[in-house]
Design a protein around this nucleic acid. Structure first.
Lengths: 204, 204
DNA sequence: ACCTGAACACCGTTCAAGT
DNA sequence: ACCTGAACACCGTTCAAGT
């Protein structure tokens, strides 16, 4: 985690970890079978930083619980941007992933979805959170702390400003919105839309 | 593309491309500034394989046009699984990405969304397609052709079969559904749910 | 169980030099 | 403009050997 948080996504390597531990590279293979196993351990650690209890509390509505967890997970991922690519390349099969999945399904069942739809909905939410954070991080150097959202929006607006209005009229007309694709506002908009779709599938 | 399609995601390297061209590694830097530039070129090529015309035709409904394109893009990505990780790590700013964005926004505007919501909705769809395909491919070796869906589902069911029902009751009860998270059926379910959410935001 | 030494087959990139 | 030769600072992984 230290390597990733200091040097970004490329800083994690078997040799670098060994170096930080004051040990030869091949010594790591006593503890880990593979570079991939190292990456899965990082994914597990980062995922555990997002508070699953946000899903458990029965006090708030199912919608607010799901959006609270989605937002919390995004915040955690953006704190460790170097780890984000690993979430998209390694299968999420760790113990925390299992726990998160269980709570997501339980929440959606309590909302009135069939178990099968609750399962599908849980995956939909995971895809959405991981996908949007990955695309967001892809536009950065992956080293925390990321630039403030407002600055990243300004950079995007700048980059989009050259779009020719004749060939791409709608894009040119909505550059200010496209500049905000990587913001919390867009993220929440997306999550709310998903929750609307899920609400439509509840059986009272 | 040949390298990626034969050797999977790790097969693309500056030196491997040079080797295939019968040239020294550093000769590539005459044509490409960076390894990243090479990757962006691959993304551009693959994205161009999905038929954008599916979005343009005014004959069919906006919903069927969007789902047709989403499904077509997924098919193209699954044909080149080695290229999929590149979509999540490189900013999509090529000419084809611009064209796809324009057509998505235009389609959503024609559906009755405000330009701003159409822009947000376009990004939502891209996130969903790329995110779910990336997670799907992450469970494979990234070398085409992928195993048939039915076999990948069977492998997932096998892997999930050990989940303890006491600790994870809902997960255990819905293993058969979770096994299908990587299928076309789940993908279409997700897209239809998004389209429902978008339909709710149309102004007649 | 845990580590080292040595080695193998790789990387991306730069720089000076050639045509 | 396009390529080579040589070099630098890296990779992941294996194998035999040591304690």
């Amino acid at each position: 985690m230290g390597l990733l948080d200091e040097g970004g996504p490329t800083a994690l390597s078997v040799r670098a970890v060994a170096g930080r531990l004051g040990v030869r590279p091949n010594a790591l293979y006593t503890y880990v079978s593979d570079r991939q196993a190292l990456e899965r351990a990082v994914v597990e650690r980062v995922l555990a930083e997002a508070d699953v209890a946000l899903l458990a509390g029965p006090a708030r509505s199912w919608r607010s619980r799901l959006s609270a967890y989605a937002i919390a997970l995004r915040v955690v991922l953006l704190k460790h941007p170097g780890a984000v690519p690993l979430f998209m390349t390694a299968p999420m099969d760790g113990p925390t992933a299992l726990l998160v999945g269980e709570q997501l399904i339980a929440t959606l069942v309590s909302a009135g979805l069939s178990p099968a739809d609750a399962s599908r909905g849980a995956y939909l939410l995971i895809v959405q959170v991981l996908g949007s954070v990955a695309l967001e991080v892809a536009e950065t150097d992956g080293r925390p702390p990321l630039l403030p959202e407002s600055e990243r929006v300004a950079l995007r607006r700048e980059a989009l400003s050259g779009v020719p209005a004749e060939a791409f009229p709608w894009t040119a007309a909505t550059v200010d919105t496209a500049a905000t694709w990587i913001t919390t506002t867009q993220f929440v908009w997306q999550v709310e839309l998903l929750l609307d779709g899920l609400a439509q599938r509840t059986n009272p």
